[in-house]
Simulated assay, not measured.
Amino acid sequence: MPSREGNGVTLKDILILFDRDFGVSIFPNFRGYNNPVDDAEWLLERSMISRGFVIRPIVREGRRGLWIGEYIGSNSVVTRTEEVYGQYASKIHRLMLKCMAKETSKRRLLEELSITSLKRLESKIIRGFKYYICPPSHFYQECREVERIYKLLREKYKDGGRVFYSLVADEILRIIRCEDAVVCPLKAPNTLERIHNLNKALRSRGIGEFRFTEPSFVEIV
């Protein structure tokens, strides 16, 4: 498996860039300078970036882990770095190498590397990361707030039958705990849009829905 030594750590030749505005990019078979910071900054200089982080598989003293480098703004400078190890880091390490060897697809890799999943790592950089606009794939398939809010609303209004949609929209805004995006579909300024966004996510997962029984009323089913 292609790799290179540098400062007591073995660097594997694949990097993944997670950018707040431009999404995720995979760079397999990367040839660099044997220094994770220099390599990441070389890559950032040649990519469309705003703010985010780079991850790379590494091996140190026999332990498989991940090097993580954070960048802020478009100046292509890595401002903070981490090395993370453990069972989940090792799993991501192996999956990235399988992708580089074409033993698994990029799609399979990206499915595993959602921001929600990556926040299981002991990484302050990743846990502090937020998309600017929540990606549709994340909102409709992965966002944990969708199901949590739906359950809370059903519990609160289970005996109420029809409810003013404005009350439901205000309740969504009150209880949401979004940690993944600056612009969240469930924080839309328009109350009706807030409910429609949640409704679309619920329907896409087959969990439930809000039914408009009259122009100003909804029923939670």
Score class of each variant (00 low, 15 high):
Asn7Lys: 04
Arg4Ser: 07
Pro189Tyr: 00
Glu171Gly: 14
Asp21Gln: 10
Leu95Ser: 08
Leu17Val: 08
Arg46Ser: 13
Ser166Tyr: 14
Asp13Thr: 03
Thr191Gln: 03
Arg51Gln: 11
Glu70Lys: 15
Glu82His: 12
Leu95Ala: 05
Ile49Leu: 11
Thr10Phe: 08
Leu152Val: 01
Gly32Val: 00
Gly128Val: 03
Arg148Asn: 11
Val37Gln: 04
Glu122Ser: 08
His196Leu: 04
Arg63Met: 15
Val163Thr: 06
Ile195Gly: 15
Lys156Gly: 04
Tyr85Leu: 00
Lys102Glu: 15
Phe212Cys: 07
Glu61Leu: 05
Arg194Asp: 02
Val59Ala: 08
Tyr165Lys: 06
Lys200Val: 00
Leu118Ala: 03
Asp19Ile: 15
Ala89Asn: 03
Arg64Glu: 11
Arg154Thr: 01
Ser166Ala: 05
Leu202Phe: 05
Arg31Gln: 12
Met100Tyr: 11
Tyr140Gln: 05
Arg56Glu: 13
Phe129Cys: 10
Gly208Phe: 14
Val163Met: 08
Glu111Ala: 06
Gly32Gln: 03
Leu118Arg: 04
Tyr150Cys: 01
Lys200Ile: 00
Leu192Asn: 06
Leu167Tyr: 01
Lys98Asp: 13
Leu167Pro: 00
Phe212Leu: 12
Ser166Asp: 13
Lys12Asn: 09
Arg203Met: 10
Glu171Cys: 14
Ser137Met: 08
Arg94Lys: 07
Ala169Pro: 02
Lys91Trp: 13
Glu82Trp: 11
Arg148Tyr: 10
Ile92Trp: 07
Arg56Ala: 12
Glu179Leu: 13
Tyr157Trp: 13
Ile58Phe: 02
Thr79Cys: 08
Pro2His: 01
Met48Val: 02
